[in-house]
Design a protein around this nucleic acid. Structure first.
Lengths: 348, 348
DNA sequence: CTCCGTTGCTAATACGTATTGGCTTGGGAG
DNA sequence: CTCCCAAGCCAATACGTATTAGCAACGGAG
């Protein structure tokens, strides 16, 4: 009872253009031209075209993507490489919106996604990545590349492979297209909001080893202030003594670089008996993934991650088409949450 | 200052085996054999091999995956096709563990993942999927295919393309390898647990249009009982009147097919003033994605989705290697939550 | 009539790799 | 010495597609 499904040819291997051509009584060239069609160089008789299309249907022909790619064609494949593991739930929440945007725009453009699975431990751009890259039309990159990674990345860009980084990243000696959030002006705006609420002594707190994004935020912070106080410390160093010291030093508002620091700050504050925003104010400069049920909404920036994902695919499509794609900047919105209160200088 | 990175050849295109061969003073054949090595048919002089390897390093050669694939080689690519959208947060929670398992095992096996992005609206296996499939060594499938989808799937399997479905699915006239959860025995076990707690009148409730998994669950339910009562209804029909009717009919325990039904049942019960598990007991037969903060833990089954994802990759690797891979069954654990209480017949 | 341009097609080639069937060289057995 | 075998290498070919060059037929302009 397991009769073979219809229009499945006896041949074990999928049919080729050659077989289609034989059936239609034409040459393989014509089959290719019927399929791609764009070359107005040669016009095809409508009747011939019909015969070819019929043969294609009869045989259930589908083009071989590998062969097509080999002759310099597009594979409609976009590689996605992440310098950190994507799926563990810790980072998944962060990367998911990017991936949503990427998937959405890729689907719209008829592109599939090639997810590079990291080697066991390290998340390095693998040595043989070139081989795997050769299947794709271009590559999207996320995460935090090391210096070594950046050098390899520079070589990749220099080889002409279209690549777009999501987040502002620079590599030595190459012009890497990025899709970035406008952290600088958003941070400046947020800082001015603190000023408007009467805060005068603000402290910017971030982890050590700032990357480009962090520097943008610092820049925006400094732009809005006469005196910009910045502290970079391990999250572990953010303890009772540190907080007390800061408050006694006159600080009334904290700008935290990521939500881990925010969480830490609120926890220390609670244990020490401080109330937010009565005793001090705070805001996160990354995307607040608070959402812990019951948590008050944190103030901070909303990074349009989904839109950035979509923009990255669009930029990559330009590069693939041979047009130069400049880096794009996406504005961030300010999230007015429950962690910003009145400062000592607010006009009543 | 933008001097080209080292070991990047002047040639705009990546180096080929031919260029490596020229540099090493050998033929392209030798380069290929040095790289693949396995053919003991021809042994290569150690010195020659060294020269070739040196040339490969000098030029920064990487194999062209498309060409390799074209000649019948493996691409180390596994396709992942889902009949529903993956990234929307509603379904993401459900699919994420599968993808985690897939990614984990793929990484371990040195495989990358090709995510097929769905066409605009429908999530059908696209007509030209064959073209996109041709790049992969095999394909993993998830979701709920329609009858039409199943026919196309049958053709795919019949064409010899390795494919593994995650979840038990049957297709007409083809032997589809599946990685399935052992719903039948887990449901039977859960049902016996209800019996042990003194429940005698159990009702199985599922949505209309049961798929293979649902039938397995029904089967397990029926196995454990003399009289198995099954009701299939739209979630909207589960209202006060329905619940009252069931309880007045003597039902003391409900087995719900999915968490949407469970949520609905608990909501209706709360509004009607019933208490769970005092007034009746309940359990979910799918994976309970309760986790709503504050919710009591639901009783039900734990589907080992992560392990199933890994198992699917392993099965696919077998198929790709040419060995037949039988369908695999993964046992489900029973989750003892807060929604099962004492029944009228429990021995004290 | 010749010349030329157009239409509609074919033959040939290139892409980069893996594999098959030789071809040479050297050495041991007879 | 001849014969044979093995080691070590190369030339040729195939994979399926896109593209370029070119060929035959035809019709209109001159």
């Amino acid at each position: 009872m397991t009769r073979p499904p219809p229009r499945q040819q006896a041949s074990r291997n999928p049919p080729t253009q050659k077989q289609v051509a034989e059936r239609a009584g034409v040459s393989q060239t014509i089959v290719s031209q019927v399929l791609n069609g764009q070359t107005d160089q040669a016009r095809i008789h409508p009747e011939t075209r019909a015969r070819v299309l019929q043969a294609i249907r009869d045989l259930g022909y589908v083009p071989n993507a590998a062969a097509r790619r080999l002759v310099g064609g597009r594979s409609s494949l976009v590689g996605v490489f992440t310098y950190e593991a994507v799926f563990p739930s810790s980072t998944r929440d962060f990367y998911a919106p990017f991936l949503e945007g990427i998937e959405e725009e890729a689907a719209r453009s008829g592109l599939d996604l090639l997810l590079y699975t990291g080697g066991r431990g390290g998340r390095r751009l693998p040595r043989d990545l070139g081989a795997r890259l050769s299947l794709t039309d271009g590559t999207l990159l996320l995460g935090r590349p090391s210096d070594q990674d950046r050098r390899e990345l520079a070589a990749l860009v220099h080889s002409g492979h279209p690549a777009v980084f999501i987040g502002r990243r620079t590599v030595p000696g190459a012009d890497l297209t990025c899709v970035q959030a406008d952290y600088a002006s958003a941070t400046a705006k947020l800082t001015r909001r603190f000023l408007a609420r009467g805060h005068r002594e603000l402290l910017y707190v971030g982890p050590p080893g700032p990357d480009e994004s962090a520097l943008d935020r610092e820049r925006g912070f400094a732009q809005a202030l006469d005196l910009a106080r910045v502290e970079r410390l391990e999250p572990g160093h953010l303890d009772h003594a540190w907080l007390r010291g800061a408050l006694e030093g006159g600080i009334t508002a904290f700008l935290l670089e990521n939500d881990a620091l925010m969480r830490r700050l609120l926890e220390v504050a609670r244990e020490a008996g401080y109330t937010v925003p009565a005793d001090f104010s705070a805001a996160v400069l990354g995307d607040a993934i608070s959402g812990e049920a019951g948590d008050p909404t944190w103030s901070g920036l909303h990074v349009p991650r989904r839109e950035m994902g979509r923009g990255a695919v669009q930029a990559l499509r330009l590069l693939v088409a041979g047009e130069p794609a400049a880096s794009t900047v996406f504005p961030c919105e300010i999230v007015v949450g429950a962690t910003i209160g009145r400062g000592p200088a607010e006009a009543r």
